[in-house]
Design a protein around this nucleic acid. Structure first.
Length: 423
RNA sequence: GGAGGAAUGGCAGAGUGGUCGAAUGCGGCAGUCUUGAAAACUGUUGAGGGUCACACCUCCGGGGGUUCGAAUCCCUCUUCCUCCGCCA
Protein backbone atom coordinates (compact mmCIF):
# COMPACT_ATOMS: atom_id res chain seq x y z
CA UNK A 1 0.00 0.00 0.00
CA UNK A 2 1.36 3.38 -0.97
CA UNK A 3 1.80 5.98 1.73
CA UNK A 4 -0.86 8.69 1.73
CA UNK A 5 1.72 11.31 2.38
CA UNK A 6 3.60 10.27 -0.76
CA UNK A 7 0.39 10.57 -2.78
CA UNK A 8 -0.27 14.01 -1.31
CA UNK A 9 3.19 15.27 -2.09
CA UNK A 10 4.06 13.52 -5.35
CA UNK A 11 0.77 12.86 -7.06
CA UNK A 12 1.93 13.65 -10.57
CA UNK A 13 5.19 11.73 -10.28
CA UNK A 14 3.35 8.66 -9.05
CA UNK A 15 0.81 8.75 -11.86
CA UNK A 16 3.66 9.17 -14.28
CA UNK A 17 5.72 6.31 -12.86
CA UNK A 18 2.72 3.97 -12.85
CA UNK A 19 2.46 4.43 -16.63
CA UNK A 20 5.45 2.08 -16.84
CA UNK A 21 3.09 -0.63 -15.68
CA UNK A 22 0.94 0.19 -18.65
CA UNK A 23 -1.83 1.42 -16.39
CA UNK A 24 -3.54 4.79 -16.21
CA UNK A 25 -3.95 5.54 -12.53
CA UNK A 26 -5.08 9.15 -12.67
CA UNK A 27 -8.69 8.55 -11.70
CA UNK A 28 -7.76 6.15 -8.90
CA UNK A 29 -5.21 8.53 -7.46
CA UNK A 30 -7.66 11.41 -7.71
CA UNK A 31 -10.22 9.28 -5.92
CA UNK A 32 -7.73 8.59 -3.15
CA UNK A 33 -6.90 12.28 -2.83
CA UNK A 34 -10.55 13.19 -2.65
CA UNK A 35 -11.31 10.55 -0.02
CA UNK A 36 -8.23 11.54 1.93
CA UNK A 37 -9.35 15.16 2.10
CA UNK A 38 -12.88 14.14 2.95
CA UNK A 39 -11.64 11.87 5.70
CA UNK A 40 -9.50 14.58 7.23
CA UNK A 41 -12.31 17.11 7.13
CA UNK A 42 -14.63 14.66 8.89
CA UNK A 43 -11.96 13.83 11.41
CA UNK A 44 -11.47 17.50 12.25
CA UNK A 45 -15.20 17.94 12.68
CA UNK A 46 -15.49 14.89 14.89
CA UNK A 47 -12.49 15.94 16.94
CA UNK A 48 -14.05 19.33 17.63
CA UNK A 49 -17.32 17.73 18.69
CA UNK A 50 -15.55 15.31 21.00
CA UNK A 51 -13.42 18.09 22.45
CA UNK A 52 -16.53 20.05 23.33
CA UNK A 53 -18.16 16.97 24.81
CA UNK A 54 -15.07 16.16 26.87
CA UNK A 55 -14.96 19.66 28.23
CA UNK A 56 -18.60 19.57 29.29
CA UNK A 57 -18.22 16.18 30.90
CA UNK A 58 -15.46 17.51 33.07
CA UNK A 59 -17.62 20.42 34.11
CA UNK A 60 -20.43 18.07 35.04
CA UNK A 61 -18.05 16.12 37.21
CA UNK A 62 -16.98 19.27 39.01
CA UNK A 63 -20.55 20.45 39.49
CA UNK A 64 -21.66 17.14 40.96
CA UNK A 65 -18.75 17.23 43.34
CA UNK A 66 -19.64 20.67 44.62
CA UNK A 67 -23.28 19.66 44.97
CA UNK A 68 -24.71 21.70 42.11
CA UNK A 69 -26.73 18.87 40.64
CA UNK A 70 -29.24 21.09 38.92
CA UNK A 71 -26.64 22.96 36.89
CA UNK A 72 -25.03 19.67 36.03
CA UNK A 73 -28.25 18.24 34.70
CA UNK A 74 -28.73 21.31 32.55
CA UNK A 75 -25.42 20.66 30.83
CA UNK A 76 -26.27 17.00 30.37
CA UNK A 77 -28.83 18.03 27.79
CA UNK A 78 -26.07 19.58 25.70
CA UNK A 79 -23.80 16.56 25.87
CA UNK A 80 -26.68 14.39 24.74
CA UNK A 81 -26.94 16.39 21.54
CA UNK A 82 -23.18 16.27 21.03
CA UNK A 83 -23.21 12.54 21.53
CA UNK A 84 -25.75 12.05 18.76
CA UNK A 85 -23.73 14.30 16.51
CA UNK A 86 -20.44 12.54 17.09
CA UNK A 87 -22.04 9.15 16.56
CA UNK A 88 -23.24 10.19 13.12
CA UNK A 89 -19.93 11.78 12.25
CA UNK A 90 -18.10 8.68 13.41
CA UNK A 91 -20.14 6.47 11.13
CA UNK A 92 -19.54 8.66 8.10
CA UNK A 93 -15.88 8.84 8.98
CA UNK A 94 -15.61 5.06 9.14
CA UNK A 95 -17.27 4.65 5.78
CA UNK A 96 -14.95 7.17 4.21
CA UNK A 97 -11.91 5.57 5.79
CA UNK A 98 -12.98 2.18 4.45
CA UNK A 99 -13.48 3.53 0.95
CA UNK A 100 -10.08 5.17 1.15
CA UNK A 101 -8.49 1.92 2.24
CA UNK A 102 -10.21 0.01 -0.55
CA UNK A 103 -9.01 2.51 -3.14
CA UNK A 104 -5.47 2.40 -1.80
CA UNK A 105 -5.42 -1.39 -2.03
CA UNK A 106 -6.05 -1.09 -5.75
CA UNK A 107 -2.94 0.95 -6.46
CA UNK A 108 0.20 -1.11 -7.16
CA UNK A 109 3.66 -0.14 -6.04
CA UNK A 110 5.51 2.60 -7.87
CA UNK A 111 8.23 1.11 -10.09
CA UNK A 112 11.86 1.99 -9.44
CA UNK A 113 13.39 4.44 -11.98
CA UNK A 114 15.43 1.64 -13.53
CA UNK A 115 12.33 -0.41 -14.39
CA UNK A 116 11.75 -0.41 -18.14
CA UNK A 117 8.28 0.50 -19.36
CA UNK A 118 6.37 -2.28 -21.01
CA UNK A 119 3.15 -4.20 -21.09
CA UNK A 120 4.32 -7.81 -21.06
CA UNK A 121 7.25 -10.12 -20.53
CA UNK A 122 8.43 -9.30 -24.04
CA UNK A 123 9.66 -5.97 -22.66
CA UNK A 124 11.76 -7.43 -19.87
CA UNK A 125 15.37 -6.44 -20.04
CA UNK A 126 18.12 -9.04 -19.95
CA UNK A 127 20.88 -7.72 -17.72
CA UNK A 128 23.11 -10.75 -17.29
CA UNK A 129 23.79 -14.15 -18.83
CA UNK A 130 26.24 -16.85 -17.90
CA UNK A 131 26.99 -20.53 -18.42
CA UNK A 132 27.43 -22.66 -21.47
CA UNK A 133 24.35 -24.29 -22.94
CA UNK A 134 25.21 -27.98 -23.17
CA UNK A 135 25.39 -29.62 -26.54
CA UNK A 136 22.85 -32.40 -26.10
CA UNK A 137 21.99 -35.21 -28.43
CA UNK A 138 19.17 -34.47 -30.83
CA UNK A 139 16.99 -36.98 -29.07
CA UNK A 140 17.48 -35.37 -25.66
CA UNK A 141 14.37 -35.74 -23.54
CA UNK A 142 12.30 -33.19 -21.64
CA UNK A 143 12.29 -33.73 -17.88
CA UNK A 144 8.84 -35.32 -17.67
CA UNK A 145 10.03 -38.10 -19.94
CA UNK A 146 13.30 -38.41 -18.07
CA UNK A 147 11.35 -38.60 -14.84
CA UNK A 148 9.37 -41.51 -16.19
CA UNK A 149 12.36 -43.22 -17.78
CA UNK A 150 14.32 -43.19 -14.51
CA UNK A 151 11.23 -43.59 -12.33
CA UNK A 152 11.99 -40.62 -10.07
CA UNK A 153 8.79 -38.57 -10.33
CA UNK A 154 5.31 -40.02 -10.71
CA UNK A 155 2.74 -37.52 -11.88
CA UNK A 156 -0.08 -40.07 -12.30
CA UNK A 157 0.30 -41.29 -8.74
CA UNK A 158 -0.10 -37.70 -7.59
CA UNK A 159 -3.26 -37.40 -9.66
CA UNK A 160 -4.64 -40.49 -7.98
CA UNK A 161 -4.12 -39.36 -4.42
CA UNK A 162 -4.72 -35.62 -4.88
CA UNK A 163 -5.01 -34.29 -8.42
CA UNK A 164 -3.00 -32.76 -11.24
CA UNK A 165 -0.07 -30.62 -10.16
CA UNK A 166 0.79 -32.65 -7.08
CA UNK A 167 3.67 -34.88 -8.14
CA UNK A 168 5.09 -37.77 -6.14
CA UNK A 169 8.88 -37.89 -5.96
CA UNK A 170 10.31 -41.37 -5.72
CA UNK A 171 13.63 -42.89 -4.66
CA UNK A 172 16.54 -40.89 -5.99
CA UNK A 173 14.12 -38.21 -7.12
CA UNK A 174 12.97 -37.67 -3.55
CA UNK A 175 16.54 -37.79 -2.27
CA UNK A 176 17.64 -35.23 -4.83
CA UNK A 177 14.84 -32.92 -3.66
CA UNK A 178 15.98 -33.26 -0.08
CA UNK A 179 19.59 -32.67 -1.15
CA UNK A 180 18.66 -29.47 -2.96
CA UNK A 181 16.76 -28.15 0.06
CA UNK A 182 19.69 -28.81 2.38
CA UNK A 183 22.18 -27.38 -0.05
CA UNK A 184 20.17 -24.17 -0.56
CA UNK A 185 19.62 -23.71 3.16
CA UNK A 186 23.32 -24.24 3.85
CA UNK A 187 24.29 -21.65 1.24
CA UNK A 188 21.82 -19.15 2.67
CA UNK A 189 22.99 -19.79 6.20
CA UNK A 190 26.59 -19.22 5.12
CA UNK A 191 25.53 -15.91 3.61
CA UNK A 192 24.13 -14.77 6.96
CA UNK A 193 20.46 -15.67 6.64
CA UNK A 194 19.01 -17.14 9.82
CA UNK A 195 17.10 -20.33 9.20
CA UNK A 196 13.46 -20.32 10.29
CA UNK A 197 10.72 -22.92 10.31
CA UNK A 198 7.35 -21.28 9.96
CA UNK A 199 3.71 -22.33 9.73
CA UNK A 200 2.43 -23.37 6.32
CA UNK A 201 -1.00 -21.91 7.00
CA UNK A 202 -1.54 -18.24 7.69
CA UNK A 203 -4.42 -16.07 8.81
CA UNK A 204 -6.07 -13.27 6.88
CA UNK A 205 -4.01 -10.53 8.54
CA UNK A 206 -0.81 -12.11 7.23
CA UNK A 207 -2.19 -12.37 3.71
CA UNK A 208 -3.15 -8.69 3.84
CA UNK A 209 0.25 -7.76 5.21
CA UNK A 210 2.31 -9.04 2.30
CA UNK A 211 -0.30 -8.17 -0.30
CA UNK A 212 -1.76 -11.53 -1.37
CA UNK A 213 -5.08 -10.27 -0.03
CA UNK A 214 -7.48 -8.75 -0.79
CA UNK A 215 -6.73 -9.12 -4.50
CA UNK A 216 -5.34 -12.55 -5.06
CA UNK A 217 -7.37 -14.80 -2.81
CA UNK A 218 -8.20 -16.86 -5.88
CA UNK A 219 -4.58 -17.95 -6.07
CA UNK A 220 -4.46 -19.29 -2.54
CA UNK A 221 -6.01 -22.42 -1.09
CA UNK A 222 -8.39 -21.41 1.66
CA UNK A 223 -9.43 -23.59 4.58
CA UNK A 224 -12.92 -22.29 5.13
CA UNK A 225 -13.69 -23.95 8.42
CA UNK A 226 -10.76 -22.30 10.15
CA UNK A 227 -10.43 -19.30 7.84
CA UNK A 228 -6.76 -19.99 7.11
CA UNK A 229 -4.80 -19.88 3.89
CA UNK A 230 -2.16 -22.33 2.66
CA UNK A 231 0.93 -20.30 1.94
CA UNK A 232 1.76 -19.62 -1.72
CA UNK A 233 5.34 -18.78 -0.69
CA UNK A 234 7.37 -18.55 2.52
CA UNK A 235 7.46 -14.81 1.92
CA UNK A 236 4.07 -14.57 3.62
CA UNK A 237 4.80 -16.14 7.02
CA UNK A 238 8.44 -15.00 7.15
CA UNK A 239 7.84 -11.33 6.30
CA UNK A 240 4.88 -11.27 8.68
CA UNK A 241 7.17 -12.27 11.55
CA UNK A 242 7.98 -8.57 11.77
CA UNK A 243 4.42 -7.32 11.38
CA UNK A 244 3.46 -4.60 13.88
CA UNK A 245 7.04 -4.40 15.13
CA UNK A 246 8.82 -1.21 16.04
CA UNK A 247 12.49 -1.89 15.32
CA UNK A 248 15.69 -0.07 16.16
CA UNK A 249 18.08 1.06 13.44
CA UNK A 250 20.66 -1.29 14.87
CA UNK A 251 18.38 -4.27 14.17
CA UNK A 252 19.09 -3.98 10.43
CA UNK A 253 19.63 -5.97 8.39
CA UNK A 254 17.24 -8.72 9.39
CA UNK A 255 17.99 -11.74 7.21
CA UNK A 256 15.89 -14.91 7.25
CA UNK A 257 15.77 -18.04 5.16
CA UNK A 258 13.10 -20.69 5.25
CA UNK A 259 12.21 -23.84 3.41
CA UNK A 260 8.50 -24.44 2.90
CA UNK A 261 6.21 -26.16 0.47
CA UNK A 262 4.22 -23.63 -1.55
CA UNK A 263 0.60 -24.05 -2.56
CA UNK A 264 -0.88 -22.29 -5.56
CA UNK A 265 -4.22 -22.82 -7.18
CA UNK A 266 -2.94 -21.54 -10.53
CA UNK A 267 -6.50 -21.22 -11.67
CA UNK A 268 -6.86 -21.05 -15.42
CA UNK A 269 -3.37 -22.01 -16.55
CA UNK A 270 -3.22 -25.16 -18.64
CA UNK A 271 -1.45 -26.35 -21.74
CA UNK A 272 1.96 -27.38 -22.99
CA UNK A 273 3.83 -24.77 -20.96
CA UNK A 274 2.62 -26.23 -17.72
CA UNK A 275 3.71 -29.79 -18.40
CA UNK A 276 5.74 -31.75 -15.92
CA UNK A 277 7.38 -29.62 -13.27
CA UNK A 278 6.87 -26.35 -15.08
CA UNK A 279 3.82 -25.38 -13.06
CA UNK A 280 2.55 -27.13 -9.97
CA UNK A 281 -0.06 -26.70 -7.27
CA UNK A 282 2.41 -27.78 -4.63
CA UNK A 283 6.14 -27.29 -4.84
CA UNK A 284 9.11 -26.77 -2.57
CA UNK A 285 11.01 -23.54 -2.27
CA UNK A 286 13.74 -22.07 -0.13
CA UNK A 287 13.19 -18.38 0.36
CA UNK A 288 15.34 -15.51 1.59
CA UNK A 289 13.79 -12.45 3.21
CA UNK A 290 15.45 -9.23 4.28
CA UNK A 291 14.21 -6.31 6.31
CA UNK A 292 16.36 -3.30 5.56
CA UNK A 293 16.99 0.34 6.30
CA UNK A 294 15.55 2.36 3.38
CA UNK A 295 18.96 3.79 2.57
CA UNK A 296 20.46 0.36 2.06
CA UNK A 297 17.69 -1.69 0.46
CA UNK A 298 18.97 -1.47 -3.10
CA UNK A 299 22.44 -2.40 -2.00
CA UNK A 300 20.81 -5.39 -0.29
CA UNK A 301 18.89 -6.27 -3.45
CA UNK A 302 22.16 -6.36 -5.41
CA UNK A 303 23.64 -8.56 -2.71
CA UNK A 304 20.74 -11.00 -2.99
CA UNK A 305 21.13 -11.13 -6.76
CA UNK A 306 24.84 -11.91 -6.36
CA UNK A 307 24.04 -14.59 -3.82
CA UNK A 308 21.62 -16.40 -6.13
CA UNK A 309 24.11 -16.06 -8.98
CA UNK A 310 26.71 -17.83 -6.86
CA UNK A 311 24.41 -20.81 -6.31
CA UNK A 312 23.60 -21.20 -10.01
CA UNK A 313 27.29 -20.98 -10.81
CA UNK A 314 28.04 -23.80 -8.42
CA UNK A 315 25.26 -25.87 -9.96
CA UNK A 316 26.75 -25.04 -13.36
CA UNK A 317 23.44 -24.27 -14.93
CA UNK A 318 23.17 -21.79 -17.82
CA UNK A 319 21.12 -18.84 -16.62
CA UNK A 320 20.17 -15.27 -17.34
CA UNK A 321 18.84 -12.41 -15.27
CA UNK A 322 15.99 -10.19 -16.37
CA UNK A 323 14.98 -6.86 -15.00
CA UNK A 324 11.21 -7.04 -15.17
CA UNK A 325 9.41 -4.34 -17.08
CA UNK A 326 6.51 -2.43 -15.51
CA UNK A 327 3.84 -4.66 -17.02
CA UNK A 328 5.40 -7.87 -15.73
CA UNK A 329 6.29 -6.49 -12.32
CA UNK A 330 4.39 -7.92 -9.36
CA UNK A 331 1.70 -5.73 -7.82
CA UNK A 332 3.67 -5.04 -4.64
CA UNK A 333 7.18 -4.83 -6.07
CA UNK A 334 9.22 -1.75 -6.95
CA UNK A 335 12.00 -3.66 -8.71
CA UNK A 336 12.28 -7.35 -9.52
CA UNK A 337 15.02 -9.43 -11.05
CA UNK A 338 13.97 -12.79 -12.45
CA UNK A 339 16.45 -15.62 -12.79
CA UNK A 340 15.86 -18.07 -15.60
CA UNK A 341 17.60 -21.35 -16.28
CA UNK A 342 17.86 -22.56 -19.83
CA UNK A 343 16.17 -25.86 -20.29
CA UNK A 344 17.98 -27.34 -23.23
CA UNK A 345 15.62 -30.19 -23.96
CA UNK A 346 12.58 -27.91 -23.87
CA UNK A 347 14.51 -25.16 -25.65
CA UNK A 348 13.13 -22.49 -23.36
CA UNK A 349 13.98 -20.41 -20.34
CA UNK A 350 12.43 -21.39 -17.02
CA UNK A 351 11.95 -18.91 -14.19
CA UNK A 352 13.59 -20.26 -11.06
CA UNK A 353 13.98 -17.23 -8.86
CA UNK A 354 12.48 -13.83 -8.43
CA UNK A 355 14.28 -11.27 -6.27
CA UNK A 356 12.40 -8.12 -5.34
CA UNK A 357 12.52 -4.93 -3.37
CA UNK A 358 9.12 -3.84 -2.09
CA UNK A 359 10.43 -0.68 -0.46
CA UNK A 360 7.76 0.51 2.02
CA UNK A 361 4.80 -0.97 0.15
CA UNK A 362 4.50 -4.08 2.29
CA UNK A 363 5.85 -2.39 5.42
CA UNK A 364 3.03 0.13 5.25
CA UNK A 365 0.42 -2.61 5.45
CA UNK A 366 2.50 -4.56 7.94
CA UNK A 367 3.13 -1.52 10.17
CA UNK A 368 6.75 -2.59 10.18
CA UNK A 369 8.63 0.45 11.43
CA UNK A 370 11.89 1.49 13.01
CA UNK A 371 13.07 4.44 15.02
CA UNK A 372 15.47 6.70 13.17
CA UNK A 373 18.22 8.84 14.71
CA UNK A 374 15.74 11.58 15.56
CA UNK A 375 13.54 9.07 17.31
CA UNK A 376 10.91 9.32 14.55
CA UNK A 377 9.28 6.10 13.46
CA UNK A 378 9.65 5.32 9.78
CA UNK A 379 8.69 2.40 7.59
CA UNK A 380 11.31 -0.24 6.88
CA UNK A 381 11.98 -1.77 3.48
CA UNK A 382 11.19 -5.43 2.77
CA UNK A 383 12.86 -7.65 0.20
CA UNK A 384 12.68 -11.28 -0.73
CA UNK A 385 13.88 -13.79 -3.23
CA UNK A 386 13.78 -17.46 -4.02
CA UNK A 387 17.00 -19.17 -3.21
CA UNK A 388 15.78 -21.30 -4.82
CA UNK A 389 12.54 -22.83 -6.18
CA UNK A 390 12.99 -26.56 -6.53
CA UNK A 391 10.93 -27.90 -9.45
CA UNK A 392 12.45 -25.91 -12.25
CA UNK A 393 15.95 -26.24 -10.86
CA UNK A 394 15.28 -29.96 -10.86
CA UNK A 395 13.95 -29.75 -14.41
CA UNK A 396 17.07 -27.84 -15.44
CA UNK A 397 19.36 -30.38 -13.83
CA UNK A 398 17.56 -33.36 -15.33
CA UNK A 399 17.51 -31.89 -18.79
CA UNK A 400 20.94 -30.29 -18.91
CA UNK A 401 22.79 -33.09 -17.15
CA UNK A 402 21.28 -35.98 -19.10
CA UNK A 403 23.31 -38.48 -21.03
CA UNK A 404 22.13 -41.43 -23.08
CA UNK A 405 21.93 -43.75 -20.11
CA UNK A 406 21.86 -41.61 -17.00
CA UNK A 407 21.61 -38.21 -15.35
CA UNK A 408 24.75 -36.85 -13.75
CA UNK A 409 24.42 -35.12 -10.39
CA UNK A 410 26.08 -31.68 -10.17
CA UNK A 411 29.28 -32.00 -8.18
CA UNK A 412 28.22 -29.72 -5.29
CA UNK A 413 25.15 -31.87 -4.70
CA UNK A 414 26.92 -35.23 -4.56
CA UNK A 415 27.81 -34.94 -0.85
CA UNK A 416 24.17 -34.09 -0.14
CA UNK A 417 22.71 -36.86 -2.31
CA UNK A 418 25.10 -39.65 -1.63
CA UNK A 419 25.10 -40.70 -5.29
CA UNK A 420 26.75 -39.38 -8.45
CA UNK A 421 24.15 -40.20 -11.08
CA UNK A 422 20.62 -41.43 -11.63
CA UNK A 423 20.32 -44.41 -13.95
C1' G B 1 -14.08 -30.37 23.96
C1' G B 2 -15.25 -28.87 29.63
C1' A B 3 -14.02 -25.56 34.12
C1' G B 4 -11.45 -21.36 35.98
C1' G B 5 -7.87 -17.03 35.45
C1' A B 6 -5.59 -13.31 32.52
C1' A B 7 -4.60 -9.56 28.29
C1' U B 8 -2.05 -2.21 30.21
C1' G B 9 3.71 1.73 26.90
C1' G B 10 10.19 -1.20 23.65
C1' C B 11 9.99 -4.99 27.97
C1' A B 12 8.27 -6.11 33.01
C1' G B 13 4.39 -4.50 36.02
C1' A B 14 0.65 -1.02 39.39
C1' G B 15 -4.08 0.99 38.49
C1' U B 16 -9.90 4.02 42.95
C1' G B 17 -16.03 5.26 37.13
C1' G B 18 -14.00 11.87 36.59
C1' U B 19 -7.80 15.43 38.09
C1' C B 20 -5.10 8.43 33.89
C1' G B 21 -1.90 8.41 28.30
C1' A B 22 -1.59 5.89 32.83
C1' A B 23 2.71 4.78 39.12
C1' U B 24 7.21 2.03 39.46
C1' G B 25 11.35 -0.82 37.58
C1' C B 26 14.29 -2.21 33.30
C1' G B 27 15.77 -0.63 28.57
C1' G B 28 16.69 3.77 25.13
C1' C B 29 18.47 8.89 24.61
C1' A B 30 21.06 13.37 26.65
C1' G B 31 24.09 15.24 30.50
C1' U B 32 27.35 15.26 35.22
C1' C B 33 31.56 12.57 37.06
C1' U B 34 35.94 9.83 34.42
C1' U B 35 42.02 9.86 30.37
C1' G B 36 38.11 6.50 28.37
C1' A B 37 34.51 2.95 29.84
C1' A B 38 31.59 0.82 33.79
C1' A B 39 29.04 2.23 38.21
C1' A B 40 26.49 6.26 40.41
C1' C B 41 23.64 10.66 39.91
C1' U B 42 20.36 14.26 36.98
C1' G B 43 17.08 15.01 33.11
C1' U B 44 14.30 12.92 29.17
C1' U B 45 11.60 8.94 26.72
C1' G B 46 4.51 5.35 24.18
C1' A B 47 1.86 5.07 19.32
C1' G B 48 -1.44 7.11 15.56
C1' G B 49 -4.27 11.28 13.48
C1' G B 50 -4.12 16.56 13.01
C1' U B 51 -1.36 21.49 12.65
C1' C B 52 3.66 25.75 9.51
C1' A B 53 3.92 25.04 14.73
C1' C B 54 0.59 24.73 18.81
C1' A B 55 -4.24 23.41 20.17
C1' C B 56 -7.09 19.34 19.83
C1' C B 57 -8.65 14.06 18.94
C1' U B 58 -7.97 8.62 19.26
C1' C B 59 -5.60 4.31 21.40
C1' C B 60 -4.91 0.18 27.99
C1' G B 61 -6.12 -7.48 23.09
C1' G B 62 -10.56 -6.79 18.87
C1' G B 63 -15.81 -5.40 18.39
C1' G B 64 -20.29 -3.69 20.76
C1' G B 65 -22.97 -1.67 25.11
C1' U B 66 -24.12 1.07 29.99
C1' U B 67 -22.87 6.29 31.61
C1' C B 68 -22.80 13.35 31.26
C1' G B 69 -17.95 10.67 31.79
C1' A B 70 -14.88 3.80 31.02
C1' A B 71 -8.14 1.01 31.39
C1' U B 72 -11.84 0.46 35.46
C1' C B 73 -18.88 -1.92 34.84
C1' C B 74 -21.70 -5.34 31.14
C1' C B 75 -21.90 -8.47 26.49
C1' U B 76 -19.15 -10.86 22.71
C1' C B 77 -14.90 -12.54 19.95
C1' U B 78 -9.68 -13.68 19.90
C1' U B 79 -5.29 -15.07 22.29
C1' C B 80 -2.46 -16.81 26.50
C1' C B 81 -2.05 -19.45 31.36
C1' U B 82 -3.85 -23.39 35.02
C1' C B 83 -6.80 -27.89 35.72
C1' C B 84 -9.69 -31.99 33.32
C1' G B 85 -10.64 -34.86 28.78
C1' C B 86 -8.64 -36.49 24.03
C1' C B 87 -4.18 -37.26 21.35
C1' A B 88 0.88 -37.40 17.32
Amino acid sequence: MLQLQAIREHKEEIIDALKKRAIEATSLIEEVSRLDEERRALQTQLDATLAESNKLSKEIGMLFKSGKAQEANAIKVKTGVLKEESKKLGETLNQTAESLQAALYQIPNVPHPSVPAGASEADNEEVFREGAIPDLATDALPHWELAKKHDIIDFELGVKITGAGFPVYKGKGARLQRALISYFLDKNNEAGYTEMQVPHLVNEASGLGTGQLPDKEGQMYHVGEDDLYLIPTAEVPVTNLMRDELLNETDFPICYTAYTPCFRREAGSYGAHVRGLNRLHQFDKVEIVRIEHPDRSYEALDGMVEHVKGILRELQLPFRILRLCGGDLGFTSALTYDFEVFSTAQDRWLEISSVSNFETYQANRLKMRYKDEQGKSRLAHTLNGSSLALPRVLAGILENYQTKESIQIPEVLVPYCGFTHID
